[in-house]
C-alpha cells in the first residue's frame, strides 16, 4: 500500500510539473490582448459566392450586408437595389434585387436616394453586394454582425469560404468598414 501511495505521489508531482511547464510554454504563446479574436469578413477578398447565407450555424446568418454611405453614389438606378435590366424604377417586387426586401430607400433630393439595410431582414446572401460592385461604387459589402455572431471556435462559414475571406481578427478591429477608406 505504501509503495502505491509513493508511486501516486510521484505521479502527482510529475503531472503537476508537466501541467505547469505546459502552462508556461503556452502562456508565452498566449496573449490576453491580441489573443481575443473575432471572426471578420475582408470585403476586399469576398467574392459573394452566397455561402454566408447558407453555411452559418444560425438559422438566419450572422453575416449581414453593410452600407458605407460615404462611398455610396446615392443613385436612382442602384445596382444593389434593382435587378439587372429593370425597366421601371419603382418599389414593385418584380424589380427588386433583395429576396427578403431588406433594402429600403428614401428620397433625399433630386436625384439622390438614400439606401438603408434592415439588418433583421437581411440574410447575408450578398446579391446586392454583387450588384453594387459590378454596377456601382461598391458601398454595399458583407460583414459579420458581431452582436449576432456566436463566435464559434471554428467559424463554419470560414471553413467553406471560397476565397478565404473570413479570418480571426483582434477584437479591437472587429469590423472592416469601407466608410473611411
Amino acid at each position: 500500500m505504501e509503495r502505491r501511495e509513493f508511486l501516486r505521489t510521484c505521479g502527482t508531482l510529475i503531472t503537476g510539473g508537466g501541467l505547469a511547464s505546459l502552462g508556461g510554454v503556452l502562456g508565452s504563446k498566449a496573449s490576453a490582448v491580441e489573443g481575443e479574436t473575432m471572426w471578420q469578413i475582408d470585403p476586399e477578398r469576398c467574392l459573394q459566392c452566397g455561402r454566408c447565407e447558407t453555411e452559418c450555424v444560425m438559422r438566419v446568418s450572422a453575416v449581414k450586408c453593410f452600407h458605407a454611405n460615404q462611398v455610396c453614389g446615392y443613385c436612382d438606378l442602384c445596382g444593389g437595389y434593382y435587378r439587372e435590366g429593370v425597366k421601371e424604377l419603382n418599389t414593385a417586387a418584380e424589380n427588386l434585387m433583395c429576396p427578403t426586401g431588406a433594402i429600403t430607400r428614401r428620397f433625399v433630393e433630386e436625384p439622390y436616394f438614400e439606401y438603408t439595410i434592415d439588418e433583421d431582414l437581411c440574410n447575408g446572401c450578398g446579391k446586392c453586394v454583387k450588384g453594387c460592385s459590378s454596377f456601382g461604387n461598391g458601398s454595399l459589402f458583407l460583414q459579420i454582425q458581431q452582436e449576432r455572431c456566436l463566435q464559434c471556435n471554428e467559424c463554419s462559414i470560414a471553413k467553406v469560404c471560397v476565397s478565404g475571406a473570413i479570418q480571426r481578427v483582434p477584437v479591437g478591429t472587429a469590423y472592416k468598414l469601407k466608410d473611411h477608406a
Binding site: 481575443e36 473575432m38 470585403p43 476586399e44 477578398r45 469576398c46 453593410f66 452600407h67 454611405n69 460615404q70 462611398v71 453614389g73 446615392y74 443613385c75 433625399v108 433630393e109 439622390y112 438614400e114 438603408t116 460592385s133 454596377f135 456601382g136 461604387n137 461598391g138 460583414q143 454582425q145 458581431q146 452582436e147 463566435q151 477584437v171 472587429a174 469590423y175 468598414l177 469601407k178 466608410d179 477608406a181
Partner: peptide
C-alpha cells in the same frame, strides 16, 4: 476589388443632408 473605384461621384447635397451616423457595436465578448 482591391482598388475601390468610385464610378459615381460623391453627391453634392444642397438640402443639407447629413450622412447617417452608423455605429457598429462590438459585444462585450472579452
Amino acid at each position: 476589388n482591391t482598388v475601390l473605384v468610385a464610378r459615381f461621384p460623391k453627391p453634392d447635397f444642397t438640402s443639407g443632408y447629413q450622412y447617417p451616423d452608423v455605429l457598429h457595436r462590438v459585444p462585450m465578448e472579452t
